[in-house]
Amino acid sequence: MNRNEATKYKGSTVLVDKGIEGVFYGRLEEVFTPPKKTWSGKVFILGLAKAPELEAADTIDEKKNVYVTVPGSKIHLPDMEWNLSFNESVVQAIQSTINELFHTSNQQLQAAEKWQEIGLIYGDISFPSPPINKKENQKDDDPYVYYQIQEKDGSLYLTESVNGDKLDLDGCPFELEIQKAGSTWIPVTYKQYYTFQDNKGKEHRAKKDNWVRIHKEQFQPFTILLNELEHPARKSLLNRIRSFGFNQNNLVDCHNRLLYELLQSEGTSSFKGVNFLTFRKPGKTLLIQHHYERTLHTDSPDYVFDRFECTTDNGERSISTYTNAYSKDHES
């Protein structure tokens, strides 16, 4: 809204963005348009449209029935009618925040409970149904597993509070997500001591006990198998599966021996074996034998060989191989 538009809305309801202190609505009383300067407006605050950050919650009362003068860039037109009392608006804003925290992650339970305490000053506040279970780390239908960052002897690891599972952060093969201020999760990779990096190269610092989540799909043997393949081999395998009329949802069994060897053979640098994949849908079954060879080198690229033998129960057959022995993109 520019200065010319602003004068047309004197006496109307507008939104005032106070940053971390929340978004309020009120009546635009005056518009100041000094020449060669940005315009500003004087607004009489009537209620709360969006709750502030938790650390600024104690500033809510400071805005009740007061005049504020803010730059025009902080004043916006609402997209709905606001006719609640101040206390009713606070209850609604806090309730919305609790609902968002609840549905984003049960790990925000403490923040939601703190908001409930603040909200009860103004009126009734309830948790969404079904209620948050303090004894549970996450809901059964949550697609993520949640971990906390812990440290021992200068090394960082992740611990899952329900089953006590632990994952070392150094060399962690999974895609991680950490939580920014508020409830936004961002994909990251672990870089070094409490430092993570997102896909744009921006670094994010974490602290002990901060939450990290991993999508459950990454623990599936087939997903882990795909992650162990180089890009051309992975692309070839997925294309082969689709060419036979199947997709990942048709997978009924994945025997991932390569994963077993990588986890169990500490100190071993050479692996050779076969993985078995079975895909099935009504009237058709696909069996894939994945013959693999891996030789790990310290000072040169690892040797990789993959051979996929695909056979359906109606006699269709296909064979493809990949190796990086010639070039990273060589495939036959």
Rank of each mutant, 00 (worst) to 15 (best):
D153P: 00
G11R: 03
F196A: 11
I132A: 13
S183Y: 11
K37F: 12
L48C: 06
Q150T: 06
Y303N: 10
E81T: 13
R3A: 15
H76P: 00
K135H: 08
V188D: 05
P130Q: 01
R234P: 01
T33F: 02
M80V: 12
T104A: 10
R27Y: 00
R240S: 10
I75C: 00
A111M: 10
K208V: 15
H231K: 14
E266S: 12
S96N: 13
A233N: 01
E261N: 13
E55G: 03
T7I: 15
S320Q: 12
H76L: 05
V70S: 02
T13N: 06
S129R: 07
S12I: 00
L251C: 07
N256E: 09
I319M: 12
K216T: 10
S40W: 08
D306H: 12
L101V: 05
N250Q: 07
V31W: 03
T104E: 12
P143K: 03
K8M: 12
V43Y: 01
E316Q: 15
D140A: 14
D141V: 09
L158T: 07
V252C: 01
I121M: 07
Y25K: 06
L277N: 01
V304F: 13
G47P: 11
N4W: 07
P221V: 09
V23D: 00
R234L: 02
K74Q: 13
K37S: 15
Q150K: 15
R317L: 10
I118W: 15
R317W: 05
Q148D: 05
E309F: 09
D153G: 04
T295F: 09
D140E: 15
G171A: 09
V23S: 05
T184H: 03
D61E: 11
M1I: 08
R294C: 08
C254L: 03
G154H: 09
L287Q: 14
V31C: 05
P52C: 07
I75F: 02
I186R: 02
Y303H: 11
T195N: 07
P71D: 08
G273R: 06
L238K: 10
F222E: 10
C172R: 04
S320D: 09
L84H: 09
E316A: 14
D124R: 10
Q248N: 11
S12P: 00
G283K: 12
